[in-house]
């Protein structure tokens, strides 16, 4: 359970809550029993199918219920083939209801693995899948929480499916990035670093990677070093700048002995600025000795 604050309540409130919970539990157990005992290969019970939707709206992590619904969908799929005139159309409509259900579940719980996977599975089976609508849904969710990696992963499945070019995908993440600079999820896509806020860690994770590029020339490195030093004058206690100087002078790129003494100083300063990670800095200092 995540992020559920413990609240103090009176005995009376507790008894009331317990009564309510008991009701919910009995309803859940009866519903599950009805659904699981009605499972068959050739046909299905409409009432059970309805109950499974209700239960999933309350808790989309009951994975067996999604499986049950997939079985029902496959039954409907087979049935639709018997009607050559309207079968496909009707099956498409049936799946549209299913897609709406997953959206309802995602509103309540945008991090449910089961809902996202079910939605994708349904779209793959859909005679006329509306991929554009899926993209809009993703954009909507990412506007709401751009760190939702389930949504990013889903978006990537769509891209694989319909073959959007990578450039427009990068443009999308750039747009998102401008909306929120510290968005690490979309940083992840970016190919260049900008220094607007040295205290924001996102940029630095990216920078380390950029600095590890073997194509980076000595000139470039020295230029970067200059820039870091200018930045450091503005932000003298920013550990990230010091770390970047360590990377730049250290084993990552330069095995330049001119910088060895400087590096020792940087690490000693980091020991003071960031004592929580002193184990790391001490280890590097020992390597230098």
């Amino acid at each position: 359970m995540h992020g559920r604050l413990k609240v103090k309540s009176s005995e009376e409130q507790k008894a009331e809550k317990k009564k309510e919970q008991q009701k919910k539990l009995v309803a859940y157990q009866m519903g599950m029993k009805k659904i699981l005992s009605s499972r068959q290969k050739e046909t299905y019970d409409k009432e059970s199918f309805g109950i499974s939707a209700q239960l999933l709206c309350v808790n989309p992590d009951i994975y067996t219920l999604w499986n049950y619904r997939k079985e029902v969908i496959l039954i409907e799929h087979d049935k639709s083939k018997e009607d050559e005139v309207e079968g496909e159309e009707k099956f498409g409509q049936f799946l549209n209801t299913e897609i709406s259900l997953t959206e309802q579940c995602l509103v309540a719980n945008p991090k449910s693995y089961g809902s996202w996977h079910h939605r994708y599975w349904v779209l793959l089976l859909h005679p006329k899948p509306n991929w554009e609508k899926e993209f809009m849904l993703c954009t909507k969710y990412l506007n709401y929480d751009d760190r939702n990696f389930h949504c990013w992963d889903y978006r990537r499945l769509l891209i694989n499916k319909i073959g959007i070019t990578l450039t427009s995908e990068i443009k999308f993440s750039t747009d998102r990035l401008n909306a929120n600079f510290s968005n690490y999820s979309s940083w992840h896509y970016r190919k260049s670093a900008v220094f607007t806020d040295p205290a924001d860690s996102s940029a630095w994770f990216y920078l380390r990677w950029v600095l590890s590029n073997p194509a980076l020339t000595k000139d470039k490195k020295e230029k970067l070093m200059e820039q870091f030093e200018q930045l450091e004058e503005l932000e003298p206690d920013c550990k990230w700048i010091l770390m970047a100087k360590c990377w730049l002078t250290g084993s990552l790129i330069l095995s330049d002995c001119d910088h060895t003494d400087d590096r020792v100083l940087y690490y000693k300063r980091l020991l003071k600025l960031d004592p929580m990670r002193k184990g790391q800095y001490q280890q590097y200092l020992q390597l230098k000795d």
């Binding site: 990013w152 992840h188 990216y206």
Partner: peptide, 16 residues
């Protein structure tokens, strides 16, 4: 595996 050394749930997924 990602640029930051981490791993995600599928190729190109964010490190977690």
């Amino acid at each position: 595996k990602n640029f930051d050394g981490g791993f995600g749930s599928r190729p190109l997924s964010e490190s977690h």
